[in-house]
Nucleic acid binder design. Structure first.
Lengths: 258, 258
DNA sequence: GTTAGATATCACAATACGTAACAAGAAATT
DNA sequence: AATTTCTTGTTACGTATTGTGATATCTAAC
């Protein structure tokens, strides 16, 4: 899952301490090839810790992220990346799309430049930080109470704001899947996601296969309510067949790149 | 999309700090050719950060548009700091306070840890980025459409959110003061500030003395509507006396030198 | 209105950089 | 022990950035 975490963290520390470092210097300092440095900083950039420039990397100006959040983004990042790329095919330029507070949906944000122009609505601070820098993306943040565990805005203010919006598409995730239903651990987060679903014309759900069989307290919605359910391969084939027979619009996403 | 942003940002800072710079000087200062400088400032001009002239670029405000927040945050920072420190005395632990999108009010944010615990409501991304890191501060972001000129959320969503809130205190600023009234350059920003004023039990206005005598298009409110108007010294004494006679709750703030 | 000088833009070439694909080695799993 | 998975390095190719020189445009002075 997370092999060789030490060097990546060392790079993060090194860069944040120096502000800006050339990639060749990182390669020499850590005694690895440029390619490896590139792969490392790609992951860090995806987490929003660093910014990739041309020939160098710089520390994110707006800052330090919650370690708890950073940890979560590191988990299953390959699966998230694959899901994010697969989700792109559902987006048309000019649309209004919504991202929820999940790290999976936030992984979509850095890729949205390819679909520009777009209007993006989100309660995720991670996604906002990325999208704010993109010229051709119109960013709308739904407000609310800041919750550091999710690095997002939730609560009544958030729900009220969502009531006044209608978007073409929602990209979201869930904590767990049992049977035909998706579950979430936090009650307030459930409320936000349900409000987002009510505001979106089309809804797609991103799930890495580890979510299956897990448990969480609050019901979000049946899987059949989504227009597409993207799942990374690794799901038992029997389960996939069963879900499709039950009417779930399942789409398997290969983790290994094409 | 937007690689190599370091030098471009450095140019933006350099120009906004100096007001107007010749292109040859930029080329010499950054050690690149004129052509490269041209390409850089073309992108900045496209973003509206600065204006291209013939032979030079300027960051001066053009017409009714206020200049970019990066420029504003560099101007009169000593005055802003003094005002922010003075504003602290109006805050009690446990209160719900509101900060507007002004750079002056954002200068208050880093100091709020001293007044914790607090709940802080703001539409400013600058302030949010600071407050998010503070454990004892409860942060509520009013959402809205992101506006890069102010680095804040504005628009209908923002106004609706503010309608549902009531806070103990508002700390805000204005672009200009003429006679007994405060003015703002942008119509949408006026709407947000007025909604904030309507939602706050007490309102204090922070003004560095350079705001006096400036002009701006839209009326915000009379100075007498505030519970305190903090102004940096440098204001002509005659004007101060006149304002106090007119019923303005004026408080002069000494600019402390370091 | 015209012209000289300066400035902006265009087109092309050179260089540096990023990324995909494949192969090899190490670690973990069965 | 065999196999799989993960990580890293190398090569090759596409892309981005920059500089140079030529051409077009602007400004200001006459």
């Amino acid at each position: 899952m997370t092999p060789e975490r030490t060097r990546i963290e060392a790079i993060a520390d090194f860069v944040t301490q120096r502000g800006e470092v050339r990639i060749d210097e990182l390669a020499a300092h850590f005694g690895v090839s440029r390619m490896t440095i590139h792969r490392d900083i790609d992951r860090l950039a995806q987490q929003g810790v660093l910014r990739k420039l041309h020939g160098s990397v710089s520390a994110q100006p707006s800052g330090i992220y919650e370690s708890h959040f950073r940890y979560r983004s590191g988990v299953a990042s390959r699966e998230k990346q694959a899901l994010a790329e697969a989700a792109l095919s559902h987006i048309q330029p000019g649309q209004v799309i919504m991202l929820d507070d999940s790290t999976t949906a936030s992984a979509v944000a850095p890729l949205l430049g390819a679909c520009a122009p777009l209007t993006v609505v989100t309660n995720s601070v991670t996604a906002s930080n990325v999208l704010r820098e993109m010229d051709e993306i119109d960013l709308i943040s739904v407000g609310g109470q800041y919750h550091r565990t999710y690095n997002a805005y939730i609560g009544h203010l958030c729900l009220n704001a969502l009531r006044g919006l209608r978007t073409d598409l929602l990209i979201c995730s869930a904590s767990a899947v049992q049977g035909l239903s998706a579950f979430i651990q936090d009650q307030q987060v459930v409320a936000v996601k349900q409000a987002m679903m009510a505001a979106a014309a089309r809804k797609i759900l991103l799930l890495d296969h580890s979510k299956f069989g897990k448990t969480a307290l609050h019901l979000l919605e049946d899987l059949t309510a989504f227009d597409a359910v993207l799942v990374t391969d690794g799901l038992p084939p029997a389960e996939a067949v069963w879900l499709e027979k039950a009417g779930v619009p399942l789409m398997l996403v290969r983790t290994t790149r094409t």
